[in-house]
Design a protein around this nucleic acid. Structure first.
Lengths: 130, 130
DNA sequence: TATTAAATAATAATTGTTATTATTTAAACC
DNA sequence: GGTTTAAATAATAACAATTATTATTTAATA
């Protein structure tokens, strides 16, 4: 799924690779620390710029949780459960909900849809037991 | 809709009044500036604390957009359209989507649901014309 | 090879939010 | 009513995430 109009610099390739391998929804800091293992001289600003850039190009997705940006490479339609205690984020799939969400999205007047996000906020099992 | 276990201080009453009158989804700064018209000596920390407090008590709702907290007093089930250019937020209602969202929410395993948020991201009419 | 634009690194500045502490307010008890 | 106690507030410091700035590097184009 390469895009012709995107310059695949070393930094961008490493960021994409990192996100592809990562299980979960890393923050900018996570990505920075991870990518730094290979590109020791990469700047955090570059990580910010490229995560934003790649999200705008649609190669990755941004998830904003409690004011901090997180990213994922899972582009398939899905939702998120977010624990309001520990912050854990998990993917959750409901094809029916994805379908209805997109159908509704496409019929909103005077609005050019880019994406539709469904977030379930609550308390995860582990936090409930405490 | 008064709650017995909530102390209705002047600050909290003014914040609730402000949110009730406000058309839209004000930030903490908006609320602070607004409430300051009547309670000139109110502290911004108090605004933060009470917005958080009132949201936890379920008297208002928090909407996090692009990393900044916004609040609203509309407690009816509804969604939001968010313009990625100008940041405009508008309420959007789809009973069918609200219903399905809640139904899905209640059936997520190992997760105690608190709320389910649906955000439509895209470009508003005004921004499209530019 | 020279020119130009894009990308990057390093870091300063900004913004939204949280933490701290002293003071004030108000409820609960005698 | 006065005293004790806890909660709420004001003022401000501290913090963390993000954005802006600027010089340098890289790479595409002529």
């Amino acid at each position: 799924m390469k895009h012709a109009d995107i310059k695949y610099t070393n930094q961008r390739v490493e960021i994409l690779d990192f996100l592809g391998d990562f299980q979960g929804h890393p923050t900018v800091e996570d990505v920075y620390e991870g990518v730094r293992q290979k590109l020791t001289r990469i700047s955090k600003a570059t990580v910010y710029n490229n995560l934003k850039f790649l999200a705008e190009k649609g190669l990755i997705k941004e998830v904003n949780v409690k004011g901090v940006s997180r990213f994922e490479s899972n582009l398939m339609p899905h939702h998120h459960t977010i624990c309001i205690k520990c912050g854990e984020i998990k993917d959750y799939e409901s094809e029916q909900l994805s379908d209805l969400t997109m159908e509704v999205a496409e019929n909103i007047d005077d609005f050019t849809i880019r994406s539709a996000d469904v977030n379930f906020l609550g308390v995860c099992k582990k936090c409930m037991e405490e």
